[in-house]
């Protein structure tokens, strides 16, 4: 069937607040202004706009969403409008009471960040002693309250060699799906890139192993969501309709002050939902137009995989070079 631009994003990732109780080594948002936040009424009004555009899914991220006192009210409002609602949390504040509130608010899923099966490694990466134990407890509390749980793990030098143990742990905790997120060199991720990021050949090695594991496991879904995996033979069971990064094509990001960006890792505002018409942003943004119609540059010009990966992750390319169309810095291909 023919390619087309969706009438609206299917998924909105929403940073309700940049405030956080952690100071993680890889965080993309720690340097952001944590003072500008929308009121509950303003957020609900934007949700009404998104519902009218038939956006399907809202994921609250951050910052730590559980620091927002109106989180459960907002989640309940969103689920009442028909959205599927999820959030990503570090789990520190997710005790029995809040797990029950999450269930009552209609959270479809809750993602808990755990980056290592070894407590000391996770706690060190998150700069928060005791955070592993609290995160594992959050998973258990959510499950016992009937909330579907996913796990988010940022793959980097601390865990790339041990990710199978991480998947084993997730499965043993009853997690439905584990997201093995690629390391983003944005914010603190850029500051600590040399220490934490893998080299391109190491990324290739990791993805081949992860895809083999994904094919072999039936008890847990393993997701990577990295466009660069399209370059690995047999990496996709089916050719996806949307190639390359999905930001600006399937998804959009809202920041704490109502600014809209293509994704959370691309800090380029393309409008503000207190001021601008949603359709004008979605259909008229030059930045989104460029992301939807990327042109190959540099080594991508000669690469046979470009049609499949479209240059890989636009956020990584932008963070490393200031140009969405530059080759993904994680790319291991050197066209001959």
């Amino acid at each position: 069937m023919k390619p087309f631009v969706l009438s609206a994003p299917l998924i909105v990732n929403w940073t309700l607040s940049f405030r956080c109780n952690f100071a993680c080594n890889h965080c993309y948002s720690r340097a952001e202004d944590a003072s500008a936040e929308l009121s509950t009424a303003q957020i609900k009004s934007i949700m009404d706009t998104l519902a009218a555009r038939k956006v399907s899914f809202i994921n609250f991220g951050g910052g730590e969403p559980l620091l927002c006192s109106d989180l459960f009210e907002l989640a309940g409002y969103a689920s009442g409008l028909g959205f599927k609602v999820s959030m990503n949390t570090n789990g520190w504040l997710l005790d029995e009471t809040r797990a029950a509130l999450a269930k009552n608010a209609g959270f479809e899923t809750v993602g808990v960040s755990i980056d290592s099966h070894r407590a000391e490694v996770h706690d060190g990466f998150r700069n928060m002693p005791g955070s592993f134990e609290r995160a594992v407890n959050a998973v258990r509390q959510l499950r016992s309250n009937g909330v579907r749980v996913t796990m988010s793990s940022v793959i980097c030098r601390i865990n790339a060699d041990e990710f199978v143990s991480l998947v084993d742990m997730a499965e043993s905790l009853g997690v439905e799906q584990i997201f093995l997120h690629n390391y983003k060199c944005a914010g603190m991720g850029m500051t600590n890139r040399d220490e934490l990021d893998l080299s391109p050949p190491e990324w290739r090695e990791f993805y081949i192993k992860a895809m083999n594991l994904k094919a072999a496991r039936s008890g847990i879904r393993i997701s990577m969501d990295d466009p660069i995996t399209a370059t690995i033979k047999g990496g996709d069971a089916e050719s996806p309709l949307v190639k390359g990064s999905t930001c600006g094509k399937l998804s959009l990001n809202i920041r704490a002050n109502g600014d809209v960006t293509p994704c959370g890792f691309i800090p380029v505002p393309i409008g503000n939902l207190l001021r601008d018409d949603f359709d004008s942003i979605w259909r008229g943004s030059d930045v989104l137009g460029k992301l939807r119609n990327k042109e190959p540059k540099a080594k991508c010009l000669q690469c046979k995989h470009y049609a499949d990966c479209l240059g890989g992750c636009s956020a990584r390319a932008y963070a490393a070079t200031g140009d969405f169309e530059s080759p993904d810095p994680h790319c291991w291909f050197e066209p001959v």
Binding site: M1, K2, L6, L10, S56, D225, P240, L241, V242, T246
Partner: peptide
Amino acid sequence: SGEGVMILLCAGVMHQLN
């Protein structure tokens, strides 16, 4: 029959239905 009118997002992959 070749015109997509509905989109499905399954495990991160988008599909179209006629």
